[in-house]
Amino acid sequence: MKTLKKTWPFHVMLLPSMIFLLLFSYLPMGGIVMAFQNYKPWLGFTGSEWVGLDNFRYLFERQDSVQVIWNTLIIAVLKLIFNLLVPFVFAILLNEIRRVKLQRTIQTLVYLPHFLSWVILGGILIDLLATDGFANRIISSVFGIQPIFFLGDNDWFRFTVIVSDVWKEFGYNTIIFLAALAGINPALYEAAEMDGATRWKQTIHITIPAIIPIAAVVGTLALGNVLNAGFDQIFNLYNPLVYQKGDIIDTFVYRTAILNGEMGFGTAIGLFKSVISMILILLAYRAAAKWANYRIF
């Protein structure tokens, strides 16, 4: 096997990206020191008072800290799982539709909700999910049960948040898997067909293994988001009745840090979230390398 003697062209190829990263990512990263300061804009980085871990302490010392972090984790993790699983399955199902026009039309339509902001969708959902709204009328006529207060009931709020988020994003998230499906060599299917494999068998043995790596990549990178449960969505949907199950780190930070210009505290929360994300990404990376012998990146 012939390999390259010189690797300098590879470094050259990476150079432009590295310059961008250095300028817009690594240079500003020095600002993380704010997490340990009571940052005042007019005093700047050198002048602001050092407060050690006080900013972090505040996050953990509130009476509702555990609840808020727990809410964030549950909502974010469930979103991560279903935003991976649903598009994965959907892409496979869509791939089975043999009429190209129908397939493309469906694909275009499901991608539409991605372009509506939560401000707009929030308004629509409040009406749609009202106790006498459309969703409840369907549910009561089909199942004959009492109306469900989707947005005002602690038992239902997370469910509503996760389902509506998956609904909004699955079409968009499907695109990656469709691209992966398009990359499968048709010869593999032809060969399987010759051997008399059913479509189900083909799916299990050819399709799914072919797109699992992409799913692993997407899933791992999504861990970078593990403590972001979706500020825009929650902020537009939550209300006092569901604070108990619906208040997340970002809404809490918005109310306490952003509205008050507490930049140090905001940085501390950001750092906390980044560290957790980084740890999880590392674990996922190791796990994939160990058990699947696959390097995600």
């Binding site: 990206s17 590295m18 990263l21 300028l23 817009f24 990512s25 690594y26 240079l27 500003p28 990263m29 020095g30 600002g31 993380i32 704010m34 804009p41 990178l221 970078g224 930049m263 905001g266 940085t267 950001g270 750092l271 980044s274 994300s277 980084m278 990404i281 990146f297």
Partner: peptide
């Protein structure tokens, strides 16, 4: 590749970014 990933996870925040 870790340089890429690290830059995705950690951010310095708005103030230093604005200064740059």
């Amino acid at each position: 590749s870790w340089l890429f990933v690290f830059s995705m996870v950690f951010t310095g925040g708005l103030v230093p970014f604005y200064i740059v």
